[in-house]
Design a protein around this nucleic acid. Structure first.
Length: 377
RNA sequence: GGGUAGGUAGCGAAGCGGUCAAACGCAGCAGACUGUAAAUCUGUCGACAAUUGUCUUCGGAGGUUCGAAUCCCCCCCUACCCA
């Protein structure tokens, strides 16, 4: 995988780069909206492009259930299926090992899920998860891993992390033994685990680095631990993961999480916050968040964030969107989603600009001060 | 003019002698949401004191009863039907 770091911050580990895939280049740091089931909920791929979304996520577990591999293969892969011609990354189902923990059993071989849709038993192995992602045709695929909960006993996190390492090895081998199905290159990242234990995180990182993945994800964080614990793990990861490979912090996070992680050398992020919270009426502004369902916005005809230059703020008022949410019109959820994605992309593009200008740290402090001082939620 | 069904907290709507400050829904208010089982979920929702507390409510006025939103009488209003 071609990844080039173009500029580095002098006062922190923050860096800017470009990640090249067959479906286009991705400037980093970057935020990737989540489109679990081949859809960023409520938004058309064309609209994502209009927002200048560079790369989106989809999920192997959910796509395997529906529409299933047959349909995805007949469609010619996910890009053609959903009319998205830019880069796409698939998560492996490792997060579902965590989020659907009541519905699965883990063994050395892999994971058996009891489908949340119809209860049927689904066998996921490191190998067949690679196969499914070949069929999906994602530009970047993730190996099956176990995301342990927090808090968890160190002994459990160790055992779990060691299993994830063995799975990663199998996934890497199987990736090498198979080829892309649609004529363009695919890449595979490794996922480090180890919870918030330095020792385990380091072991996991070293083992995965030895396998020479195309990039490295830091997994198993933002599952309930204090943010400081997460940052500690990032400081450590920064010293262990190769400079020359992209680093992806999975499932993170709030604007503050993202900026603090960029400061610690992370290049890629995904999170459901902007889309899910958008559907629930919470929108992000430079001076904090606000819940547009509140009656206090009923006659507030200002844009969501005055002076913020995006499609939603240029064209719609708080009062209108509040009305839409209030009467259950899907457009309300959509406009909030569009706005939040736009805000998150603005956040990472601003970070890039300030890293390049050498002003990242100051800008981050100023942004967070403003964001936290006047929370409208 | 006659008949029938009703008038319950912001709205809608249960309750039909005590366990009723009164189910439930909506609206309101507050909160949650981090590799999406989330267009979801939680709390609150008469007024005050703000933990077990007190006070005023079920169209209005009387009455029966130890006790009424619930029973009786009169009045007012609404919807529909018949003249």
């Amino acid at each position: 995988m071609k990844f080039s770091v173009s500029s580095k911050d002098t006062r922190s580990a923050a860096r800017c780069g470009v990640l090249s895939t067959s479906h286009g280049d991705i400037p980093t740091p970057i935020f990737m909206p989540v489109g679990t089931r081949a859809s960023v909920k409520s938004v058309e791929p064309e609209e994502l492009k209009a927002l200048d979304v560079k790369i989106i996520l989809a999920n192997t577990y959910h796509l395997f259930l529906k529409p299933g591999n047959d349909i995805l293969f007949k469609a010619g892969g996910i890009h053609r299926f959903m009319n998205w011609d830019r880069p796409l990354l698939t998560d492996s189902g490792g997060y579902q090992v965590y989020s659907l923990s009541q519905l699965r059993k883990i063994s050395e071989e892999g994971v058996i899920f009891k489908s949340h849709l119809d209860g049927s038993r689904l066998h996921f192995t490191p190998e067949n998860v690679v196969d499914t992602q070949r069929i999906i045709g994602s530009d970047i695929m993730m190996p099956l891993d176990e995301c342990p909960p927090w808090p968890a006993e160190k002994s459990y996190v160790r055992k779990s992390g060691e299993l994830t390492i063995r799975w990663a090895e199998r996934a890497r081998d199987h990736f090498a033994d198979t080829t892309p199905l649609y004529g363009y290159e695919q890449f595979q990242f490794g996922i480090t685990q180890g919870g918030t234990f330095e020792e385990l995180r380091a072991e996991s990182s070293r083992a995965l680095v030895d396998m020479d993945f195309d990039g490295y994800a830091v997994g198993g964080l933002a599952v309930g631990e204090p943010a400081e614990e997460m940052y500690r793990m990032l400081d450590l990861s920064h010293t262990l993961l190769p400079e020359s490979k992209p680093r992806y912090l999975m499932g993170v996070g709030t604007p503050a999480n993202i900026l603090n992680a960029i400061e610690r050398g992370i290049d890629m992020f995904d999170c459901v916050i902007p889309t899910r919270e958008g559907r629930n009426g919470r929108v992000y502004t430079r001076s904090g968040t606000m819940n547009l369902r509140s009656a206090k916005f009923a006659d507030d005809f200002r844009p969501i964030d005055e002076g913020f230059d995006n499609h939603v703020c240029r064209n719609y008022s708080r009062a209108y969107i509040r009305h839409l949410l209030n009467v259950g019109e899907i457009l309300g959820m959509k406009l909030c989603t569009l706005h939040n994605i736009s805000f998150y992309l603005w956040l990472t593009s601003s970070a890039r600009r300030h890293i390049q200008a050498g002003t990242f740290t100051d800008w981050k402090e100023a942004f967070l001060k403003e964001f936290n001082s006047n929370d409208k939620a």
